[in-house]
């Protein structure tokens, strides 16, 4: 317990130092706080519900053998898409500097999506061959 209190105290001090830095050095505090709040709202109110809806509404409607592959690939592609927003949007691209953001990012992203779909397909076939069937037989048409 003493160790935990000490660790906690170190954390509180580090956090307070950060808060002090924010108040002292950032004269543009309001947009910073808006970004912080916006980030939380965007995650808790949009991204997380979307992921849950996908898990609850979409996955169970897929053929049984495709569910695991689809869930895994959706996680990988979904997270890629989240962190790739700035490059896909070309945020920061400027005419005077062709060396920045100098790829066709939609092509790269599309390539990853195609590769992901191929993985789902092959993995599903392999699962079917291995005899993976819905044990509850709730969806009987997955073969």
């Amino acid at each position: 317990m003493t160790a935990r209190l000490l660790i906690g105290a170190v954390g509180v001090l580090a956090g307070l130092y950060g808060a002090l830095l924010l108040l002292e050095r950032t004269d543009d505090l309001v947009p910073v706080l808006l970004w912080v709040a916006g980030g939380v709202v965007l995650h808790d109110g949009v991204l997380a519900p979307l992921a849950l809806l996908l898990a609850v509404l979409v996955l169970p409607r897929l053929p049984y053998a495709a569910r695991t592959p689809a869930a895994a690939v959706a996680l990988v592609l979904g997270s890629v898409t989240v962190w790739a927003v700035p490059v896909l949007g070309g945020w920061g691209r400027r005419e005077d500097n062709p060396t920045l953001l100098d790829r066709d990012y939609w092509l790269g992203w599309g390539g990853l999506v195609v590769a992901g779909l191929a993985v789902v397909l092959v993995w599903t076939v392999l699962r079917l061959r291995a005899g993976e069937r819905d044990r509850d037989a709730a969806t009987g048409e997955d073969a």
């Binding site: 935990r4 209190l5 660790i7 906690g8 170190v10 954390g11 509180v12 001090l13 580090a14 956090g15 307070l16 130092y17 950060g18 808060a19 830095l21 924010l22 050095r25 950032t26 543009d28 947009p31 910073v32 970004w35």
Partner: peptide
């Protein structure tokens, strides 16, 4: 907003809150 001071202050807040969370 100015990136560097905000990202630097945010780093201390994030790591501090993380350490508290671990405790």
């Amino acid at each position: 907003f100015s990136f560097r001071p905000a990202h630097y202050a945010g780093a201390w807040i994030a790591i501090g809150a993380l350490v508290v969370h671990v405790a």
